[in-house]
């Protein structure tokens, strides 16, 4: 099964086995991983599921919606910034590691 690993600012690490197509946001919210809110329900409207993706992984390009939302994140935007609701594992991407930012709101 694909896996998603969440690294907290505290250094704590959570690795979850997920189904193909599971998004970083949905997996975190469903499993109670702290620091990822997703209050708009995965609609790229709220920027409360901001994560930093580790490593050089092949993810789909940011849509204009996502790109604009990332300018509104609570924690600083970097080249590794993505919205957790817009990135998923599966389709050749078997594992994803992300850092959870210090704040979302």
């Amino acid at each position: 099964m694909p896996t998603i690993t969440y690294h907290q600012p505290s250094g704590e690490r959570t690795t979850l086995e997920v189904a193909e197509g599971a998004t970083v946001m949905r997996t975190a919210v469903t499993n109670g991983v702290p620091g990822i809110v997703g209050e708009c329900g995965g609609q790229a409207m709220c920027a409360t599921c901001h994560v930093y993706v580790r490593g050089d992984v092949a993810l789909p390009e940011r849509s204009e919606d996502e790109d604009e939302m990332l300018d509104c994140t609570s924690s600083e935007r970097t080249d590794a910034s993505r919205l957790g609701c817009q990135i998923a594992v599966g389709g050749g991407l078997d594992s994803l590691e992300v850092d959870v930012p210090a704040s979302q709101v």
Binding site: R26, V29, T30, N31, G32, G38, C40, G41, G42, Q43
Partner: peptide, 20 residues
């Protein structure tokens, strides 16, 4: 929001907890 925005015929219900 997903109940109306991500609904599909016969698909999985787009359920998302507010918090786990």
């Amino acid at each position: 929001p997903p109940l109306s925005k991500d609904l599909s015929a016969g698909g999985e219900l787009p359920l998302l907890p507010l918090r786990a």
